[in-house]
Nucleic acid binder design. Structure first.
Length: 210
DNA sequence: GGCACGATTGCT
DNA sequence: GCAATCGTGCCT
């Protein structure tokens, strides 16, 4: 029965490619923000542009737990800019900083809870334009800008996936960078990074790694 | 309409 | 240490 063999082969090939693509689900993003920020270290961030793909390994993140967290943009309430963070998890929150750079966040937690995880640095894997060490450079290297704000990360343009082969990772944490204005909230150890990656962003990396 | 400032980066 | 550069939030 050759036809059965062919059908089986197709089914298996499809199952295999689905497993290989293990894209993170809405359920994953609806979990605890601090756990997510930590577990994103080592995952792959992928941006599909037509037939091209840009891909990097996430090596640095920061958790923002608004509205109570005074370092979070959502601490200032629900505004046109922060709207996405108040929506369902698993969407991109992209904003312009210093009139020059974009920053990419992943919306996390239950709908209505304005939490997000800032993606700060990538180890290059495929198609990146320059370095991705730092949130501004990450967006430039990946080709992320304002038009990606609100994008569903469970769709097929921009997503995060668990790599086929999981490398062993030593995760360290530290205070978040550039949020001194937030007083005591700036002291929370809500920055996570791969202790062994040379691609963690500049300030904070060398001292925190020692 | 005006204004101060920022979850950054790179050069001095 | 500081300039680049502009959207956002807040005030008038």
């Amino acid at each position: 029965m050759p036809s059965v063999g062919v059908a089986d082969s197709r089914a298996m090939s499809s199952a295999r490619s689905q497993q290989r693509t293990s894209r993170l689900t809405r359920t994953f993003y609806s979990g605890s923000t601090l756990s997510i920020a930590r577990s994103l270290i080592g995952m792959h961030l992928v941006h599909r542009i037509g037939t091209q793909s840009r891909r990097g390994r996430i090596v640095e993140t920061e958790a923002y737990l608004g509205p109570s967290d005074q370092a979070a943009h959502s601490a200032r309430g629900r505004t046109p800019r922060t709207e996405v963070m108040f929506g369902p998890p698993g969407h991109a929150y992209v904003y312009l900083i210093y009139g020059l750079w974009y920053c990419l966040n992943v919306v996390t937690g239950a709908e209505g809870v304005p939490h997000a995880v800032l993606l700060r640095a990538l180890e290059p894997i495929e198609g990146l334009t320059g370095r991705a060490c730092g949130p501004g450079l990450l967006c430039r290297a990946l080709g992320i800008d304002r038009q990606h704000n609100g994008l569903d990360l469970c769709a097929d343009r921009l997503w995060i996936e668990r790599p086929e082969v999981r490398r062993r990772v030593r995760i360290r944490c530290s205070e978040r960078i550039g949020v001194d204005y937030a007083g005591a909230w700036a002291k929370r150890p809500w920055r996570f990074f791969d202790a062994d990656s040379p691609f963690v962003s500049g300030r904070g990396a060398p001292t925190a790694r020692r």
